[in-house]
Design a protein around this nucleic acid. Structure first.
Lengths: 119, 119
DNA sequence: CCGCTGATTCGACATGTGTCAACATGGGCG
DNA sequence: CGCCCATGTTGACACATGTCGAATCAGCGG
């Protein structure tokens, strides 16, 4: 491992965010936290960008690879920043290009929130 | 290679909106449709209302039971309307009260979108 | 060093959104 | 019938958001 950098995944924040919506009513704080994640995916452009990163080979994508979603390049950057602030993406600069990568724990947390009653 | 494999339309054909985000990039139309659902849950008040309905006994809840989320009654009605327009809830009037119920197929569709790569 | 390309930030604008008070509707009940 | 309670609708307003062009920052190569 050439780079010994450690990213604060902060899984203790994202993963145990909230129980499934069908389990019990969310508290105001839980709803506040979870809504941030859902809101981040509540825009078509961001949803496309996120899926482009998530489905990209190697689990990461350069901005140059995903900036063809019909809006200007500054707008792409703006949306990527939003996704990063919501904890859904992480970014890393390698030379000229910036690579984005999905945060799997957050994705899992959202899936768990939406999971139907596991019977 | 002629891919004769039929797309798995799944049992959740009521809302076969989009594949998992990690499977392939969403098209503009798919993202447009899916973003509506995520945006509907992208507000803390709506998220609480939805979880109140989803977790309520019998799978349905009267407005009078869930209208204590810290906002005025018209605002509650407004948010419930939004959730209904997004296809996440259905409403039915029975006498004096109006009962809301979750649309399970849509919930399943959202969960599938967020599902990590299936085994 | 200077310019080039990729990416972010800034400033501005139009539009969307959440919220409430006031009013309207609709159905039970006295 | 007429009141009243539970919901929904309307109008208005402050604020957030998406978008772009221009400017700025960050490496790379000549």
């Amino acid at each position: 491992m050439p780079n010994a950098k450690v990213l604060p995944v902060r899984a203790t924040d994202a993963a145990p965010c909230c129980p499934p919506l069908t389990e019990r009513p969310l508290t105001a704080e839980e709803a506040e936290r979870a809504a941030v994640m859902f809101k981040a995916l509540g825009d078509p452009v961001r949803l496309r960008l996120f899926s482009l990163v998530a489905s990209h080979e190697g689990g990461e994508a350069c901005v140059c690879d995903i900036s063809d979603v019909g809006v200007s390049q500054p707008t792409v950057s703006h949306h990527l920043k939003k996704l990063k602030e919501a904890g859904l993406l992480t970014s890393e600069r390698r030379g000229t290009w910036v690579y984005y990568r999905v945060e799997p724990s957050v994705l899992a947390a959202m899936g768990r929130i939406l999971a139907s009653a596991p019977v």
